[in-house]
């Protein structure tokens, strides 16, 4: 392994790489030897500081942790993991839109309940990837995966994409380039509605959550009024 690569690892350890060149990170991830180098350079810094304050610790649990995690599922979080940031940046206006108007999203708005709707995101996956076996994971990172956001007649999705942009630049770029508007089918919304009531009814039989399941159903009714106007608009 040549010194040029190790020098890159050294710079990576200090977080001194151009943001564009996450290439070096990819290289470290791929090479067992560079991973060792990465580990030892970090260890070195810890030991230097440890030597100064009189406590040098030496453990190596990396292999054990890796083996223990082999049976664990890969983590998959669609688009963005930060519900809170979405709520903070876009809940007030988006939430209001959803509750007040005859939006296609009304149905699910009822499910998620106002604040949660702010981070409402729909992704469409190609079947093979979505059903991916472990070796096909992560489906989000795979190149065949198509990401779609659902177009609505309000600004929900735009707001979500912006949230993703502000928090994760590279990811948002990727998202924008592959985003294609589609329409969530009305029949699917109705299904979701009925599913939710059934789900909550069943989960409520476990009295451990007190009033929470009922409150969820009742507030899910927020969607019921929206539904009426939507049906009217469609002339049913």
């Amino acid at each position: 392994m040549n010194d040029r690569l190790k020098e890159q690892v050294s710079a990576l350890v200090d977080n001194e790489v151009e943001s564009a060149s996450s290439n070096s990170l990819d290289q470290v991830l791929k090479s067992p030897e560079l991973r060792q180098t990465w580990q030892r350079y970090h260890q070195l810094g810890d030991w230097m500081r440890g030597a100064a304050d009189g406590k040098v610790v030496n453990v190596d649990v990396a292999d054990r942790v890796r083996m223990a995690l082999e049976s664990e599922p890969a983590i998959l979080i669609p688009v963005q993991s930060s519900v809170d940031s979405a709520e903070a940046t876009s809940s007030s206006d988006v939430g209001a839109n959803v509750v007040s108007g005859p939006r296609p999203w009304g149905q699910i708005a009822g499910i998620g309940i106002a604040a949660a709707v702010a981070s409402l995101t729909v992704l469409l996956f190609q079947q093979n990837n979505f059903l991916g076996l472990d070796d096909q994971l992560p489906f989000l990172a795979s190149s065949e995966t198509t990401l779609h956001s659902v177009e609505t007649d309000n600004s929900n999705v735009a707001a979500i994409v912006q949230t993703a942009e502000s928090s994760q630049d590279s990811q948002a770029d990727q998202l924008n380039s592959t985003t294609q508007p589609t329409q969530l089918s009305a029949s699917f919304q109705e299904k979701l509605d009925a599913y939710l009531v059934s789900h909550v009814k069943q989960s409520a039989t476990n009295g451990m959550q007190g009033m929470l399941p009922y409150a969820r159903v009742v507030n899910h009714g927020t969607g019921a009024s929206v539904k009426n106007s939507r049906i009217g608009r469609q002339g049913r």
Binding site: V122, S187, F188
Partner: peptide, 22 residues
């Protein structure tokens, strides 16, 4: 027939739902 988009993941933030075809 007529079911349009059957592979979807709906993330409402707190009450989460995933849907797809199997």
């Amino acid at each position: 027939d007529g079911d349009e988009f059957s592979n979807q993941s709906v993330n409402t933030g707190i009450v989460n739902a995933l849907t797809g075809t199997v």
